[in-house]
Design a protein around this nucleic acid. Structure first.
Length: 415
RNA sequence: CGGGAGAUGGUAGAGCGGUUGAAUACACCGGUCUUGAAAACCGGCGAAGGUAACACUUCCGGGGGUUCGAAUCCCCCUCUCCCGGCCA
């Protein structure tokens, strides 16, 4: 959630920044008004409550002294009705405010480049030269079929479209990658966690998936629970509504989880192969950082993910997202895109974001700084998307017969 | 899923319906003492909103009710613990 006090004092700035994220300035104006009217009604309510408390104390005193309370009681009764009315007003003002506030995306950082969509993203650098093939490299689904690695049809039979089954060496490679990623993250100081794959509504609101993006989530029937779309949800919310001590920061966490996404609105995109599935494996990094030091942590996370790709010998590029392409919660994002020779293009394999205090405000994650509580910064990034790494290995390590070599660093993990 | 018990500040643990936002102990922080530490003694010590700072408001698992007044009484929900069933 954005800082409403900041909004009050910097309307033009906020409004202009959110324009890029597709928010109409009229909505921002509404938001400011709702905030102001909530504060106004709460002031009235609190004054009336103060009166009530005073009179109740008097009441007790009168009783003790044997005085007549009839007049006082009628005053108290009248005030009570006043309070009930204010309470109702306050409640509806609050509803109105949060209905809007929770659906407003984060403000982009000042140094985020301007742009409409992914075409305006800025390539920062390329790492590793793509290999030159003396034959036409195949796409991963073709390789999968030749090697008997992926059973798309039976995945569909078991669940529905966009589900698949990994077999034999591919299943083993998937597991090897998970272990490799977790080990690499541990070397950077990320503590490994194994968390619930189902989270409740409050957690999904904390990280920003709800209330706005419920259509992308698998909900458990008759329960207030959802399959997680990313480990960012449980890892970040581990400290939901908690106050950390300054010395705890930064908290660096990593975890493997499957991720479940409905992919609503992705009809027809990447329907072939394993690029876009309803269920996929991912190893995630999450950091809870001191607000003055989150930039350092962010750089480290980007470096870590890039280094893992390099260790696997996978060519990739580092891309800075423009404001038009930023996700809902992100203030700044860097994507890593891996080279897929079969597709002859770079495809996203990791996305690393600093949400600043946006998620922290929603999830109430704070730390003590000189007796005062201050919101932390939360960061998240993939290191890495496992299925897409598997695809990248298949396409980059194929030979002319369709045989796929195992990257050197993974061999110990395949034994 | 069935039977019983419970939910209070970082932890432990009190709390007749009326200066109880909450005794007490431990932990923690500051100070005195000490070469330093420990001990002892003194002081401080929950959160949110609000304020320049006060004031003030709210919070004793969550929600609702009774009352002038609820941590204390009533109802619902959630969670935890113990016993049984099922089970990796």
């Amino acid at each position: 959630m954005i800082d409403l006090k900041f909004l009050q004092n910097n309307f033009d700035l906020v409004s202009q920044k959110l324009q890029k994220k597709g928010v109409d300035s009229a909505v921002i104006e509404r938001l400011g008004e709702e905030f102001a009217s909530l504060k106004a009604i709460n002031a009235k309510l609190e004054a009336a409550q103060a009166d009530q408390n005073q009179m109740s104390k008097l009441f007790g005193q009168y009783k003790k002294e044997g005085k007549d309370v009839a007049e006082l009681k009628s005053k108290v009764d009248a005030n009570k009705e006043l309070i009930a009315g204010y309470q109702e007003e306050s409640r509806s003002a609050e509803d109105a405010l949060y209905t809007i506030a929770l659906s407003i995306p984060n403000l982009p950082d000042d140094d985020v480049p301007h742009g409409e969509d992914e075409h305006d993203n800025i390539e920062l650098r390329r790492v590793l030269e793509p290999r030159r093939f003396d034959f036409i490299p195949k796409e991963h689904w073709e390789l999968a079929e030749m090697n008997g690695w992926i059973d798309f049809e039976r995945g569909v039979k078991l669940a529905k479209s966009r589900f698949s089954v990994l077999k034999g060496q591919a299943a083993r490679l998937e597991r090897a990658l998970i272990n490799f990623f977790l080990d690499q993250n541990a070397k950077r100081g990320f503590e490994e966690l194994c968390v619930p794959f189902i989270n409740n509504e409050a957690m999904l609101q904390g990280t920003g998936q709800l209330p706005k993006f419920g259509d992308d989530l698998f909900k458990i029937e008759d329960e207030n629970l959802y399959l997680i779309p990313t480990a960012e949800v449980p890892l970040t919310n581990l400290y939901h509504d908690e106050i950390l001590s300054e010395s705890d920061l930064p908290v660096l966490m990593t975890g493997y989880t499957p991720c479940f996404r409905k992919e609503a609105g992705s009809a027809g995109r990447d329907t072939r192969g394993m690029i876009r599935q309803h269920q996929f494996d991912k190893v995630e990094m999450v950091a809870i950082a001191h607000p003055d030091k989150s930039d350092e942590v962010f750089d480290m996370m980007v470096e870590n993910a890039s280094d893992i790709l390099t260790a696997l010998g996978l060519p990739h590029r580092v891309v800075r997202l423009c404001d038009g392409d930023l996700g809902f919660s992100a203030a700044t994002t860097i994507d890593l895109e891996v080279w897929l020779p079969g597709q002859n293009q770079y495809r996203e394999i990791s996305s690393i974001s600093n949400t600043r205090d946006f998620q922290a405000r929603r999830a109430k994650i704070r730390f003590k700084e000189d007796k005062k509580n201050r919101l932390v910064h939360t960061l998240n990034g993939s290191a890495l998307a496992v299925g897409r790494t598997l695809i990248a290995i298949m396409e980059n390590y194929q030979n002319v017969d369709g045989i796929i070599e195992i990257p050197e660093v993974l061999k110990p993990y395949m034994r």
